[in-house]
Design a protein around this nucleic acid. Structure first.
Lengths: 338, 338
DNA sequence: TGAGTTTGCACAAACGTTTGTGCAAATTAA
DNA sequence: TTAATTTGCACAAACGTTTGTGCAAACTCA
């Protein structure tokens, strides 16, 4: 059904070998005459030949495909990163198999397994947790790997992350400097690299400014909207509700806002918010959001660069961990109560 | 390096053939003894065997991979659809190669070519334009295909779309019923299925209510933010600026809002907006957006269902075109000026 | 005991490539 | 004219699977 080298060979009266060599531009090395070359090229064009990448991949052990593992593409933060990665990868002639894990470690393991089966040339992974056996395995058979957004402390591999600690510190400090003392944090998925760092940044900022850390203000366990909604509802019901919330993802923020409005509160008059991630619509929200902005496109770009380098060096290069700085963007969701 | 059938065969003292048959659960058909089966299974497990899907794909002409072609994953509308598709496909054991076209037809053609090379079992495509030769080609070699969101009128293939005409009609009518007469439309990419239908819905709603269609209110040519920004800027500078804008995508809306605020206008007092697509944050915007909501997840789900059916029927089934209804969600971005 | 049947597995080809090597024919050199 | 060299290409193996077929050995039955 599909046109193969054989078809071209028959049509042009030469062997498959020769056809392959012509099409791969190896006519010099193997001394194919100019005329034969012309004939083959014409036949290939006439028949609209397209190489079978399965066969090539099998033979060459190279598929020009890389695997991207992402927790949730419907989250705009990941969507942007994914888009950047896709675009850059395409430019270097690579395709992308995208797997979403929905923050489930079993799915992650399964998906990575599938990617391996499909013979991808490299991996860009935003892992769910701190479990690393399945990732270590990738390294063990010497495939390029870069961890993105979240990294795993004791793994020697390429990674590009944001300085979540610094971001969280800045966010919390900003609240403190505006006079807030009862500051809650709504966490994302526990024990992820990002969440741990953000939690620590939050705590340290409080401590450094002599504000006591209250366990009742440390809530949440998921990066999604529902978590933001529920935890905010609960926070608002406390006897001494927080005057400010640090929401650690855009989706959490979304849920938080919903809860706040349902409770007839306003931002920032009744409650202040600082959010992690900067969504496009942030400036146009009822209360334009003050956020810690992560350099999304850059993250994707750097990840691609690292992976490409690693693929070229065939794993012989030392691994790099690149830390990008997030930026505090002050808008109007924090009330100054000094 | 990787474990193959051969390794298992050696370790368990049988032939590759037998190993393959055991692992594929064909022991009945080929009468493999229970004992041999056990030995092979154990060896496979011990060696952590994973089938090479390239070799399988080559032999079986089936890769358990489908190709998804999407204009722009950073657009939340597409991101949601993509996420839904990924999730459903994974459940049926399929992987997804995702290609983004950035609304460029050349890229689309190239990407589809790549997908073909990689032997995907089927395609879900949100095409850029009305050009269909390259899509027709997919059908010609009998691969399952479903067009999504945008379809091509004179192509006999599966498709799932939203009734854009009805959506646009409702949106426009809503503006008219609130007393607006100077109503602008900011179009997305011209000559796309979606844009044409939306434009027609807009025009017909105006006509049906006896409002004249002014060419100067019909602007724009791209689904992205910049287009919304620029066109809104220009609209606001007109001698008789529109009192309402129908923005045909969420990104356009974003740009429009930016322009409106820059010009120190407010929504809906100075200008009303109805938008296509419903982003999560729409209710929490400075002026909660009145929108035409598309059933994003459903679109993905139905597309997967259609594709799966088509793959099972091996193209023998008749093609279906499924039209989903969008829904007008009234919030506060339209002023009643009656 | 011997013919017929069943059981249990291996051989080999095929999927579409790439590539080391071999070998005639053509060319050059002597 | 003959030997040496160069030119131009084909053969065959290999990548890791799957599967139709063939063929001993074991078993059954008379």
């Amino acid at each position: 059904m599909l046109v193969t080298l054989n078809d071209i060979a028959e049509k042009s009266g030469v062997s498959v070998t020769t056809v392959s060599r012509v099409l791969n531009n190896k006519h010099e090395k193997y001394r194919i005459s100019a005329e034969t070359k012309k004939i083959v090229l014409k036949a290939a064009k006439d028949l609209k030949y397209r190489p079978n990448e399965l066969a090539r991949g099998l033979r060459l052990k190279k598929t020009h495909t890389i695997g991207l593992v992402v927790p949730d593409i419907s989250n705009p933060f990941f969507a942007y990163i994914t888009h950047a990665i896709q675009t850059y990868m395409y430019q270097s002639g690579y395709s992308l198999i995208i797997c979403v894990t929905n923050e489930n470690i079993e799915t992650e393991i399964r998906q990575i397994d599938l990617l391996r089966s499909k013979g991808v040339d490299g991996y860009i992974i935003m892992p769910v947790g701190q479990k690393s056996d399945h990732l270590q395995e990738i390294l063990s058979y010497n495939k390029p790997l870069v961890l993105l957004d979240r990294c795993i402390e004791d793994m020697n591999t390429n990674a590009v992350v944001v300085d979540n600690y610094a971001g969280a510190y800045k966010a919390t400090e900003h609240l403190i400097l505006n006079g807030h003392r009862r500051i809650a944090i709504i966490q994302g998925l526990l024990n992820t690299y990002t969440n741990n760092a953000r939690l620590n940044g939050y705590k340290d900022a409080l401590k450094d400014h002599g504000v006591t850390v209250h366990e009742r203000y440390i809530v949440g366990n998921d990066f999604r909207k529902e978590n933001g909604y529920i935890e905010t509802k609960l926070l608002l019901k406390l006897e001494d509700p927080p005057s400010a919330i640090f929401a650690t993802s855009d989706l959490i923020t979304l849920g938080a806002m919903q809860a706040i409005f349902e409770e007839k509160c306003t931002i920032p008059d009744d409650i202040s918010i600082v959010a992690f991630d900067d969504i496009d619509f942030a400036p146009y929200l009822i209360s334009p959001l003050t956020v810690v902005r992560q350099p999304k496109e850059l993250m994707g770009e750097v990840a691609v660069k690292l992976l490409t380098e690693d693929m070229k060096a065939k794993g012989r290069k030392e691994k790099k961990r690149i830390v990008l700085m997030p930026e505090l963007v002050v808008r109007k969701s924090v009330r100054n109560i000094l």
